[in-house]
Design a protein around this nucleic acid. Structure first.
Lengths: 241, 241
DNA sequence: CGCGATTTGTGCACGAGTTCACAAGCGCCT
DNA sequence: AGGCGCTTGTGAACTCGTGCACAAATCGCG
């Protein structure tokens, strides 16, 4: 597994990509650093300290340094990080040096919005095809693409080298769509449907559930309002039954 | 995530669950359990074992039992959990016994979709008002609500008792909107804009960045494809430079 | 009425992730 | 050249989360 390899500081200069085997928590933060770096680059700075970048990304500076150290030494002590170099390095690590083709399944309310979301295009992805099970939607043009029927998924995915699929269907259809995506060779799925998907080994699934996020906020609201409504003191009121 | 309370001598007397101090990881999973439970209830079952519920929610059964134990003992050994009782208990814990009013700011591509998303209504939330900074959109009806101008936010939020705000604007406007929300008394924010928000103590922010999710998947894709060229002198088909 | 089958609740050990604190390295100024 | 201030990179302690394994509790049945 993750033996302590010397981890050559010049990482990718040779032919070997050297798979750094990053902690998952670090991987999840790299995109945030990348976004912050692009923002910093636009303001004209060409170096940035860990403190500055941490603030821009909303994290602790020690955490940021440890995260970046996992991809090698790309900072200069006493100076900071070279913004352009770091951008390249993170983009390479995330596999964004090539623009990845994405299939979007389900062009309902949410799917429509995702198809038109500019953030995908500007951050390394290309929505290569739209699919839906509803024949009445097939052919409909959205943002320069025509909706295709889900039965064409395998053919199109192969032709376009699509490895990532996005599910924006109702929950009832999601598992079938996932199966179809896997059958078409997709190995990464982003699921917006509120349900658990079962997929074979080797396929990655990430889930985004909009209602869940609100419910988590609701919990904190509940706690906050309960605290403020405690009459008297908020210390050890602790009313028994 | 956000701030922690000083948490003084926390009364842990039995009986009525007076604000159990749940681990954040547990809170994040409760909504998932809740969704699974509703699904199970619809199929007619009135009890469910930790094993069954864990499978439906996509987690480990020991983890699930530990999570539920934090809210008290609501299972019966040898039998399982009473579905209806557990639903009530989780909904209470999450503060979903009252339907919470939400303000949505930004009715662009994504905002439109969110305004029409049925999942919010069916899971404890009511979109109470829509706002936008663009005067040309004000008055536009979406899903039974008319878009209002952002300058009316404070008034409407007070009238409707809105404590949760959703930001679906471009990143450049997000901080201003957040400030306006906070000024209007909102204490929980769900942010879809790709930027870091700074808010005062006591305000919770959760962030959903659609592109980040794809970038994380991209990392794993990158790793998978690099793995296919296993050490053995296979294809050194330059992925990078 | 007691026994066995079943399932919850939890103590404990382990691993992942976070934070602190500081040595090592770098550039600049004198 | 040498010292000084600044910043990175990282060892080490600590916190948080997870998963195993099992005792305690409950039900059904003979």
């Amino acid at each position: 597994m993750s033996q302590h390899r010397p981890t050559g500081p010049n990482g990718r200069s040779g032919g070997v990509p050297a798979l750094p085997d990053l902690p998952e928590a670090t991987v999840a933060r790299l995109p945030e650093y990348l976004r912050a770096l692009h923002h910093i680059a636009e303001t004209g700075n060409d170096t940035i300290s860990s403190e500055g970048l941490a603030a821009a990304a909303g994290v602790n500076s020690a955490k940021l340094r440890k995260d970046l150290s996992h991809l090698g030494s790309y900072g200069t002590r006493g100076v900071g990080y070279d913004v352009a170099l770091l951008i390249d390095q993170i983009e390479f690590t995330l596999g964004l040096t090539q623009r990845r083709a994405v299939a979007l399944v389900g062009v309902g309310n949410l799917g429509h919005a995702l198809a038109g979301y500019a953030g995908f295009a500007s951050r390394g992805f290309r929505i290569a095809a739209l699919f839906d099970a509803d024949h009445s939607r097939v052919g409909e043009p959205i943002n320069g693409l025509n909706v295709q029927h889900i039965s064409d998924l395998a053919t199109v995915a192969a032709a376009e080298s699509i490895a990532i699929g996005v599910i924006a269907t109702p929950a009832a259809a999601a598992q079938d769509v996932a199966d179809a995506l896997v059958a078409a060779g997709v190995t990464s799925i982003l699921n917006f449907a509120p349900c658990v998907l079962s997929v074979p080994e080797g396929v990655d699934v990430r889930k985004v559930d909009l209602a869940i996020e609100l419910q988590i906020l609701s919990f904190h609201e509940h706690r906050k309002s309960a605290l403020t409504s405690l009459p008297g003191g908020l210390a050890e009121e602790a009313v028994g039954t």
